[in-house]
Design a binder for these strands. Structure first.
Lengths: 232, 232
DNA sequence: CGCTATGTTGATCCATATCAATAAGTGTGG
DNA sequence: CCACACTTATTGATATGGATCAACATAGCG
């Protein structure tokens, strides 16, 4: 681990309130590694020996069954993954693969569990993080079960617009086929869904999105804070 | 709270390793309440003032959007709910309604958060429970996105058979329309899915299920420990 | 510059929802 | 205890969302 990484790590949700001793104990044990795009970091079914934390780049969590694959989420800088598996010392339910060149901190699961016992603030942060992840997945299920694919796409666009600063022009940031998988549809279907949204003021060219009539789009999407609000 | 409830509560995962002082502090603050069937205990969007724990009966967690409703899960004796919302002091993402006459412990959210800070073992149990819930939802998403409704039903039957003791005859335990909602389909479709499974040795009459050819059913269901194993 | 992966479009098929009618339970009050 | 109302389950007919297959276009990338 490079010294230059430390401040960035320290500022992450999970670590920012923990005491200095515990933090240096964790970082002493931790590795930082860089990966090129398209690398599988973990495989579903494997034991998880390390808690992973993204400090740069992006990756997708995905799962397979019966020769089919689906993406569950995209993670970016600051996100933790397989925390739940580490906590329960259980096999990973998802695989992870880098999408871009990525830098990842890996903390031995043993050390995480140990520090958890010693440091109240860290324990609190772990619980907050887990609860946050849980709520994220619950929102995802609600979206899947209650909405059509077009509604999911519309809400995704509105959410992503907000996350990228709110301008009416922004960029998708991921390949469409991955977006399709995240949203629970095929790439072909996503293409058609995009066309369907054109009358609602959505122009998508490659990765570039422009939302010219937000009200029309919102009218279709009917966003709800209990599904689409990333905070809370 | 009745004294007779205490041993039962103490034996629950969440409390069984915590120290005696913290436990009596929690139970002093807690209420136990009985509810008839079909009562809404919590409403999505509401602030959650209490952690809830089932000690008898059953209920469903469900959510609504745009005039549609879907059931996310059924909870029975021993299950906690809205732990994540309590931890984060955030609005509930799901509503809860009793299905049978049910007995529920309600612990003020404040006290939960307070004891969490004081008692390591309790903190550990909370994290384990949250991680367990998280993994449960992830398995649910995988099932929804990777399987057809018939495959989901087949796996549900196998899982439920195991949970009820493994006999080839068992009872569903819930109304079919709720099962349909849990599995992400309409009641009409569930009826048809059941008929589709008949050639695979599945006989369902009312709530009574008989699985006469488990291998055939497993051949269709292709159960995976990473989706269908309730433990870990 | 050509190869390969990605995206688009069209045609068709399949799974699932919807609508409608009936049957079978379930509970309630007379 | 039965008759009635109401909810739940089943079945059939049909509509629709979404998947699949195939062809082609396009964009990255070596």
């Amino acid at each position: 681990m490079r010294v230059s990484d430390i401040p960035k790590i320290r500022s992450l949700m999970l670590f920012k309130d923990m005491d200095e001793d515990s933090f240096s104990e964790l970082t002493r044990a931790a590795y930082v590694q860089d990966f090129p795009p398209q690398v599988d970091l973990i495989l579903e079914g494997d034991r998880c020996d390390f808690l992973h934390i993204m400090i740069d780049g992006s990756l997708e969590l995905f799962a397979e069954w019966n020769r089919h694959e689906t993406a569950l989420t995209i993670l970016r800088s600051g996100a933790t993954f397989i925390l739940a598996a580490v906590v329960r010392d259980a096999p990973n339910l998802m695989s992870a693969r880098t999408l871009e060149k990525s830098r990842v901190i890996m903390i031995p699961a043993e050390d995480v569990r140990e520090i958890f016992q010693k440091d109240h603030e860290f324990a609190r942060a772990v619980v907050m993080e887990l609860a946050y992840c849980y709520r994220g997945v619950v929102k995802g299920v609600k979206s899947l079960k209650l909405r059509t694919s077009i509604e999911r796409l519309a809400n995704y666009l509105l959410k992503w617009q907000k996350k990228t600063g709110g301008s009416d022009s922004f960029t998708l940031g991921i390949e469409k086929r991955r977006l399709a998988s995240i949203l629970g549809m095929t790439p072909e279907n996503l293409s058609r869904a995009i066309k369907t949204l054109r009358p609602y003021g959505v122009e998508i060219d490659g990765q570039n999105v422009k939302i010219t009539d937000p009200d029309a789009l919102k009218g279709l999407a009917k966003p709800s804070p209990l599904i689409d609000d990333p905070r809370s």
